[in-house]
Design a protein around this nucleic acid. Sequence first.
DNA 1: CCGATATAGTTCAACTTTCAAGAATGAGTC
DNA 2: GACTCATTCTTGAAAGTTGAACTATATCGG
Lengths: 165, 165
Amino acid sequence: MGDMTEPRWLSDEEQHVWRAYLHATTLLEDHLDRQLQRDAGMPHIYYGLLVQLSQAPRRRLRMTELAKSAKITRSRLSHAIARLEKNGWVRRETCASDKRGQFARLTDEGTEVLRQNAPGHVTAVRQALFDRLSAEQVQQLGTIMRVMAEGLEPQGPDADLPWLR
Amino acid sequence: MGDMTEPRWLSDEEQHVWRAYLHATTLLEDHLDRQLQRDAGMPHIYYGLLVQLSQAPRRRLRMTELAKSAKITRSRLSHAIARLEKNGWVRRETCASDKRGQFARLTDEGTEVLRQNAPGHVTAVRQALFDRLSAEQVQQLGTIMRVMAEGLEPQGPDADLPWLR
DNA sequence: CCGATATAGTTCAACTTTCAAGAATGAGTC
DNA sequence: GACTCATTCTTGAAAGTTGAACTATATCGG
């Protein structure tokens, strides 16, 4: 499958950078997962869901919106919200204007969990990342990450209409 | 828990960079996972295990070595190798010098799977990352990732002997 | 050699993620 | 309105992950 031409392999430097990337991103993800699992009793992604809700108007979002902004499938979100609901941190609400729809709303308990854990989480992110990088490097990182995202964005220009290009 | 002093929150720029980081790394990981799942029938991490084995002397590694270099728990590795063994891509071998030990060895079939999928994978990495960044940015990314890793390295200086510091 | 402790790897139960249906509602067309 | 198709969200089963308990072997200090 694919074309039969020899691919351009990675140069030595590229290989090193790629490994460093995999290494560092894995370590950071594991670190934050463990920190939040220990302190807040949930993995990083669940915490992210609560954060998104906390910043939304009326502290609620449609399931599909939330799934999109957290970049997970609706199915995964359904299960995740079920779990968070069991914890009492989120509540589902039906949508009046679209009877198929559901809102996930952050409860007061959920807000409280966030309030208690935000400091520890920010500190962890700081210690791992921002306190170790120069201002210049932070800026470089931002630029690089934006370039990467552009190339992977499902929402790229006409991404779903390739025949129009 | 933790100290009661107000943490240093993230500045606007830091917040943006942090989100860009999460966004981009998630997209890339998802992208590679899907590419390999589709083409090779396994997730990115499993592919990484095969790569590690392919580069080891005699194409085999002790379980603990492999777990360390892939940065996963031994438990997770046990399950993963069980699956790869079922696929016929890896075989377990007992270790003569330490009867507790096991080697995971890449089979010829495993090598073949790697040979067939390496081009597609490199191309995916290239398209997502290296073909989109300037030489300078690649270098910057490498530096930044190494700094990050240093701060998270479980193997930090005397990491497991904190009382000696 | 003995006993205590450490290490290698596996296994189990709980939890999370994925994938493929499926139920319900909405929207467009005639 | 009825038909068709799209969208929203959920469900259930299979696969993957985690953390703790467990087995077996090795190592250390007498």
